[in-house]
């Protein structure tokens, strides 16, 4: 579904991603872990071209989306993204937040979009918040809304950039539950997170990035019980 060829990213002189080659298949749930500053968020943001690769190619569903000739807006519709800071639109109601993109892009009538937004809200138990503004929601509620806002575009893959890192500890659970349900429903997911429990439970593959290189990856059981690379052994000993 997503193929990354010889991806390099520089910020000025700083070589953040070093020649990464990777393929993510449909239905996979890839969890990316690593120390801060390792490049894991940059890698995720390169997948939908929020960061433009310095060199290399990103292929998505058969299109080279890193080519300047590609209309990236068309492909981004199929790649949902959830941010650490939620990034809900503060000037719009929750319902409008969810329906803005599908309606503006002419994918759905306003009526149909509203109906589906209400279904989605119902799924996360926030039906009564449809007319509220983001500032009236808790962090956990905001992030759940951000997830269904991305889902309203009916994406083929969902990218999560540390979705629980800005939340109070007691709200982490409710967001992870929604993500788990999404995984069980068969969504392809790429998740950058520090939640090792989530990685262990939901991931089909866990990837360890350090200093811009994928040092090791494996299915979660082996990844956590038999880490091979000394950097990963050290990392796991600190976070587990």
């Amino acid at each position: 579904m997503i193929t990354v060829n010889n991806l390099n990213k520089f910020f000025g002189k700083n070589h953040v991603l070093k020649n990464i080659n990777e393929t993510i298949e449909k239905g996979e749930k890839v969890v990316i872990v690593g120390p801060s500053g390792s490049g894991k968020s940059t890698f995720l943001r390169c997948l939908n071209l929020l960061e433009v690769p310095t060199s290399g190619e990103i292929w998505f569903e058969g299109f080279n989306i890193s080519s300047p000739k590609t209309d990236i807006n068309l492909h981004r519709r199929k790649m949902g993204m959830v941010f650490q800071q939620f990034n809900l639109f503060p000037h719009l109601t929750i319902l409008k937040n969810i329906t803005l993109a599908p309606v503006t892009l002419g994918l759905e009538s306003e009526q149909a979009a509203n109906a589906r937004a209400k279904q989605l809200l119902d799924r996360i138990g926030l039906t009564d918040k449809a007319t509220a503004y983001p500032s009236q929601l808790s962090g956990g509620q905001k992030q759940r809304v951000a997830i269904i806002r991305a889902l309203a575009m009916q994406p083929d893959v969902m990218l999560f950039d540390e979705p629980t890192s800005a939340l109070d500890p007691e709200m982490v659970g409710e967001v992870l539950v929604v993500m788990k349900e999404l995984a069980e429903a068969g969504m392809t997911m790429v998740v950058v997170t520090h939640e090792m429990g989530f990685a262990r439970e939901v991931a089909t593959r866990v990837m360890f990035i350090d200093e811009g290189v994928i040092l090791e990856q494996n299915e979660p059981k082996t990844f956590f019980s038999e880490p091979k690379h000394p950097r990963l052994v050290d990392f796991l000993s600190k976070v587990l």
């Binding site: 981004r76 800071q85 990034n87 892009l105 991305a150």
Partner: peptide, 15 residues
């Protein structure tokens, strides 16, 4: 206006 707002709009496929 926070950069995240632009990013959120763009990732939803808006120009």
């Amino acid at each position: 206006v926070d950069k995240g707002q632009t990013e959120a709009g763009r990732t939803l496929g808006l120009s």
